[in-house]
């Protein structure tokens, strides 16, 4: 049960990051390698804000102060990450929209390197710790302990996903996004500003990553300059598992990957912590080989 709870929390975080991958892939068929680093950027933005708003020596933070600090840092991280995402798209991907497939993939990996090194120069190579922004209290569910932070992460993730689902399926902007994903040319003939819609996709995806990063920080307590890259790979695996381009699939995939990785990590004599990375990547390969469309995806033929 402990394992399941940890897995759900981890899975919720993967799912939030996976949403960014899957939205971008759905709309321009690009693996945005920089997404994981945008996530780390969000965490690094939140750290000084939390430091300022929370008394670092006090483990008993008043509830009002916690809510205020977390809200402000989530908004700031989401806003700055959203802007960063749009800027990345504008500089590195938009000029290559009609270039061969290889070109934007290479710039994506380049942007990821630039961002990661910038984060390294900013905060150094060691993990950065945050103050306790929410005083811990533990509840018991079905005989296992669960902290309020864990509950918060799961609840927030569900809220974000519901909101995103509504946004995609119920608003005009969401409809335009789905149209661009389906057929860019036809969408532009219907009067949709394709460039703007793609920018919005990056804005939303990156903002989600930024917000998710704050909750990751609250849960883990620290973040390193390269945490986002590995987490991004796992999140991408989640997106593929769920069926890339499929929003609900990304959520499901995130939860499944979270459960798998926390289950493997819990295995005895330390083999889990050593082997969970290879196992996750092996999972990715197996999915791609046996069910490339993912759990919820439908098989699509490649666009010509």
């Amino acid at each position: 049960m402990d394992v399941i709870i940890a897995g759900l929390v981890l899975g919720a975080l993967y799912a939030i990051v996976a949403l960014g991958y899957t939205m971008v892939y759905g709309i321009i068929e690009l693996i945005n390698f920089a997404h994981g680093d945008v996530f780390t950027f969000g965490a690094f933005v939140a750290i000084p804000i939390l430091n300022r708003l929370v008394n670092q020596n006090d483990f008993n933070v008043p509830v009002g102060q916690s809510i205020f600090a977390v809200t402000v840092s989530v908004l700031a991280a989401a806003a700055l990450c959203g802007i960063l995402g749009v800027v990345i798209e504008r500089i590195a991907y938009r000029p290559l929209r009609n270039a061969p497939r290889l070109a934007p993939l290479i710039t994506a990996i380049g942007v990821s390197l630039i961002l990661e090194n910038a984060l390294f120069q900013w905060q150094g190579g060691l993990p950065v710790f945050t103050p306790v922004a929410i005083s811990r209290s533990t509840y018991t569910i079905l005989g296992s302990p669960i902290t309020n932070v864990q509950i918060l992460v799961i609840v927030v993730a569900i809220l974000m996903m519901v909101a995103l689902d509504l946004f995609i399926n119920r608003t005009n902007l969401g409809k335009a996004m789905r149209a661009v994903a389906q057929d860019r040319e036809a969408a532009s003939m219907m009067g949709i500003n394709v460039d703007r819609i793609i920018a919005v996709t990056f804005l939303v995806g990156s903002a989600l990553a930024g917000a998710g990063a704050v909750f990751y920080l609250l849960y883990e307590g620290s973040v390193g300059y390269n945490s986002g890259f590995t987490l991004g790979l796992f999140a991408f695996t989640a997106a593929v598992l769920g069926g890339i381009g499929n929003i609900r699939g990304a959520m499901l995939g995130g939860i499944v990957i979270g459960l798998i990785s926390s289950w493997i990590e819990s295995l005895g004599n330390g083999s889990g912590t050593e082997w969970y990375e290879p196992v996750i990547f092996a999972t990715l390969v197996l999915i791609l080989v046996f069910r490339p469309a993912g759990l919820l995806g439908t098989n699509t033929t490649e666009k010509v």
């Binding site: 593929v240 290879p278 791609l288």
Partner: peptide, 28 residues
């Protein structure tokens, strides 16, 4: 053999995965 049937961009991420696995396996 299992991955080259995939489209190019999936291959990028799978090879990235192999690049992470191999040193990890050697380490372990």
């Amino acid at each position: 053999a299992p991955t080259l049937r995939l489209r190019g961009d999936y291959l990028a991420i799978v090879t990235l995965g192999f690049g992470e696995i191999v040193p990890k396996v050697v380490e372990n």
